[in-house]
């Protein structure tokens, strides 16, 4: 089991092409922890903005009467991938991991696999 800080470090060091990562509470839109980022990628802004993305998708699933949970959400930009992964553990209810990747350096399948592993081990 890993705590938030360790998990974020693990994401940045073990996932190729990682630009920044945040653990976000989508009830409040605030980040519980962030690592990486840059002048162009403010992770607190990303946390607030992507909270709206997660909330909208949860609402869409409700409207469609699907008894399903989100495993992950992938957003492809011209030069980046953004990966959102809600936490599944009991301690992670209402939280998601947000990961920004550089498309030219990242391996998407490997990144998803690694993020799944890190999420499963994360204890908040």
């Amino acid at each position: 089991m890993a705590n938030t800080e360790t998990a974020l470090k693990d994401v940045m060091s073990s996932i190729d092409g990682a630009i920044g990562v945040a653990l976000v509470d989508y009830n409040s839109g605030m980040a519980l922890g962030t690592l990486g980022g840059s002048a162009e990628l403010d992770l607190n802004v990303a946390a607030a903005g992507n909270t709206d993305v997660v909330r909208a998708k949860v609402r869409a699933i409700e409207l469609l009467n699907l008894k399903e949970a989100i495993e992950d959400i992938l957003i492809s930009l011209n030069t980046q991938y953004h990966l959102i992964r809600p936490l599944t553990g009991r301690s992670g209810k209402g939280l998601f991991l947000y990961l920004a990747l550089d498309r030219s350096r990242a391996n998407l399948a490997m990144a998803r696999h690694q993020l799944k592993r890190i999420e499963a081990e994360l204890e908040v």
Binding site: V24, S28, G29, M30, A48, G49, D52
Partner: peptide, 8 residues
Amino acid sequence: ANIGRLHL
């Protein structure tokens, strides 16, 4: 309310 957004 999304407090992150509200602050921003």
